[in-house]
Design a protein around this nucleic acid. Structure first.
Lengths: 233, 233, 233, 233
DNA sequence: AATGAATGAGGATTCATTCAT
DNA sequence: TATGAATGAATCCTCATTCAT
């Protein structure tokens, strides 16, 4: 053990980052449940107890990791969105998103456990901070999206951000099968479950954006009625 | 304990269903991790060990639950899709999906743990059976979708099925926050995370379908090039 | 399942033997703990419950197996002892024992669990029967031994039987290492633990018999005194 | 709980010994299977989990116990063997062994489960260490035996060590009957199974040593031939 | 007599978290 | 601050045995 004391604020922040880096590194080849705090401590050359000085719980540690990844993703996306003021085609926007995503390869897997795992066993305050950060960040990107996508009505930018989030975590779960499933993918008829993340995500997001782009005025609320009529016929 | 012996095949099936019903009931107010096999046994008036005669592992039990919910969802959807042969509008299809979904209120929460939890710790054979069932069922519905959505090219029906699945599990996770998060939803600025499942799912699916509906010929593969140009400009 | 009813006494005995044969077969490649009653039932084409009609407990089943093996061993040995009336050399007797042992290859492994496992969880009556059988059988062979080994004083025949038993189970345990140990036998210096049953048993038994053969009159009880004297010197 | 932290190496060793002492204490009145880790924890005033910091598995804990007992036995024996250089009579040696054994009353019962229980469920490294220790210790005592027993040819010292081991565990199993058997010992005819450890062990070991002592030249390898001849006649 | 569904005691082990040092 | 020893809750699953059919 090093026994270096981090008395300065910047030293503490450094230490914090070392821990996060170690966790991220382990997360590349393992899962949240598969990683133990002992491993993280060892990899960051710190004592087990030290980790808990910087993070209250294991979930909080990974939530911080997620926050960083989200931040960088949003930054990357915003940067790309700010390169021009011209309207974006659905394909172009999809591209920007995918590019931004590829800078942070662990974001999808972190997003996939965000709601079901990480946000449990975290204290109010931490959650509050995280959600506030996310809200601010999402709103900023939402505005940027609304600037580049003229067809978006006010508020739809934020909705699109959430929809992207939903697609990221959903597509990730579908494209990252359990070991047993992975083995079975070669079985006849099961290749349909072999779904690589990127192309499927691209097609889905593109379709979604193109759908948003369509003027809705021509099909106002009729869907329900149509259906019922059909059902009767 | 009852000590009634289920010796006939149909009695065994009945018992099996009793167990599943008990598990589903518990799942309504708790989570996979929060439920113990002992609770399920108690609720189905059986011994702890008896459960393991019918299901090898806890995961397998819930996988079977998921299978049943998926089956009923697909049946409900197929039935609705077969009521007419006329082309469906995006809104109409969305409606059909949401209706089918509402028959099985636990489907989203089961789908949400399917890939990350259930498909782990299940043996090859069980997984194979499950995936084969899912493949067959998905393909049938895919064909039905292609019949009612003329704009779908062959194979796009299946993709749409997967996209619906992705939206279901993704939107569910976003709309079913952890207790701590739920508490914070009233905080100023955090109401944006209060996302009820149904409307958000409806809008997202509708947009997706409308996007698929658009002829793609007008924007062929140019997206990447466009973007790069923009970035340079 | 066969559902054959064994109404006749001889049919029941047959069934009993089938079960024992199945258990013995499994015991060749597995251990007492490694074998389940379900496996024995399956291998003897009977229902699990049926096994318990013939044997009250798993231990009793294997105790019966041990009894049979002991019986056959004693028979084989007695037969060989009866072929002549001439005094036996230690080597010759050792040979007879080893030959008799080799007819029943499972005897050592059964003897090795007899006192530590089998005789636990067996009811009084069964144990009584077993022990009575063993006593009678041992006494008969003891007499035969005393006939062929003139140097044995009355009662020493029985003691020799017990000593043979002790050597069988002791040498077996030493010569049948756990898997982990077996792996380690190649390590430098650990080859000394690679002790094949037969030669080690032969040498040990031979020495023991030769020791019994020696007239004890010349060294009467002095050992203790000698030692104490030495210690003082 | 005490919550004293053992941070120094010697404190940790102390704690380790406390656990071993507790286990040994329990082992006096119970069996390996009858003792639970929880009991050991309670008796050593430690948390259940703490035990597993010091010993990976229950088997490892008891293996360590066995190692200590073996060590002390070997030490005691070596000490006695070193008191003089004069040749030992069989009776004298037997005495030394029995005396050494009586210092460690639990050794026989630990030896009796060594091969059948303890050496299972222990990792390679632990087993390696244990076996290496045992090899070294046995070889040293073997040399000492060869010094005091002139009739032993090189290598026979080690063989004698193993033979003593075999007798210890074998005689122990025979002399420590299951409760049911113990009850039956008064039954007519079954008193022959009432075999106290010490005298039976003494007589057996003495005979064995005396056998080893005999010059073998007069009966060279003829035993097999003799026997066959007899069988034919 | 035969069956196999039902039973439930039984226990080692992990690991996030705490806190004495 | 840093440490790592100490903690103990938490639970799935096996399998010998029973007994309703």
């Amino acid at each position: 053990m090093m026994q270096r004391r981090a008395r300065q604020v910047h030293q503490k922040e450094e230490r914090r980052q070392e821990i996060l880096a170690a966790a991220l590194e382990l997360f590349k080849t393992s899962s949240f449940q598969g990683i133990t705090m002992a491993e993280i401590a060892q990899k960051s050359h710190l004592g087990k107890g030290t980790i808990f000085i910087y993070f209250n719980t294991k979930e909080q540690l990974f939530l911080t990791l997620a926050e960083q990844e989200f931040l960088e993703f949003f930054e990357a996306l915003d940067e790309r969105l700010s390169l021009s003021k011209a309207p974006l085609s659905p394909g172009a926007l999809t591209n920007l998103v995918v590019e931004s995503l590829e800078c942070r390869p662990q974001l999808p897997s972190l997003a996939a456990i965000l709601h079901t795992v990480l946000e449990h066993n975290v204290d109010r305050l931490t959650t509050l901070k995280f959600k506030e950060f996310l809200a601010n960040r999402a709103l900023r990107t939402a505005r940027n999206l609304e600037h580049r996508l003229p067809f978006l009505s006010p508020g739809q930018g934020l909705e699109l951000v959430f929809q992207i989030h939903v697609l990221v975590l959903g597509v990730w779960q579908v494209s990252d099968p359990a070991p047993v499933v992975k083995d079975l993918l070669k079985a006849p008829g099961l290749h349909i479950f072999d779904i690589p993340f990127r192309p499927f995500f691209e097609r889905s997001l593109m379709a979604l954006i193109r759908g948003l782009e369509q003027p809705r005025s021509f099909q106002p609320q009729r869907s329900l009625f149509e259906e019922q009529t059909e059902a009767q016929g």
